[in-house]
């Protein structure tokens, strides 16, 4: 993997943001390929531990959206 690869972990709510990411695909929008989506049932599912853990695993940024 290239050194300068940025890694963004995104936690997307199944009901809104995950659907929005689907829609971005349907609309053929383009965005950088640095994000990795983890689908969660609701942003209420988010625990601070997930964010800390993502950083510990080398994420450059964490994005929670819901």
């Amino acid at each position: 993997m290239a050194e300068n690869n940025i890694k963004i972990v995104s936690f997307l709510c199944n009901w809104c943001s995950y659907g929005a990411a689907d829609l971005a695909g349907v609309s053929r929008m383009e965005y950088p390929a640095d994000i990795r989506v983890i689908r969660i049932p609701c942003s209420g599912r988010m625990s601070p531990k997930f964010i800390l853990s993502a950083f510990r695993e080398g994420a450059d940024a964490v994005w929670v959206s819901g």
């Binding site: 689907d22 971005a24 695909g25 349907v26 929008m29 383009e30 965005y31 390929a33 989506v37």
Partner: peptide, 25 residues
């Protein structure tokens, strides 16, 4: 896991990175 809407459709100009992302997913 969604390798179409979140991947091939949005990274169509970067096949290598998209393949890598698909593997990650």
């Amino acid at each position: 896991t969604n390798i179409r809407n979140h991947n091939s459709w949005v990274h169509k100009n970067n096949p290598d990175i998209a393949t890598q992302k698909a593997k990650d997913l």
